[in-house]
Amino acid sequence: MALSIEMTQGDIHVTLTLSGDVDTKTAPELLSKLTALELHALEQLRIDLQGVEFVSSAGLRAIIFAKQKMPHSSSLYLVGPSDQIVETITKTGLAQAVVIVQSTEEI
């Protein structure tokens, strides 16, 4: 399934709304969207995964890459990830890099 990524700019944050699957083929698109942001100066990044079923290891690594580029004081929210995505990032130890919320109201 193809991936579409929509970007919106808030006052202090950027939101990427994803729909489709982030698999081996589409993960590079996510990575290039992320690298195009001014990550080193970004205070808050929200990645909306409500329209995503599956994120491959390459997609997760792209997200971790973004967090590592952002300032230490910054936050990276994953909005509405599926149970399977939450399980994978929990058991592989990637969960502490991100904040998981069900919807943007919780932020």
Binding site: S56, S57, L60, K91, T92, G93
Partner: peptide, 18 residues
């Protein structure tokens, strides 16, 4: 690794050690 089918056994094992 429960995540072996995603090729993430390295991360899962490191997480266990940590």
């Amino acid at each position: 690794a429960a995540s072996g089918k995603f090729g993430m056994q390295v991360d899962e094992f490191k997480q266990l050690v940590k």
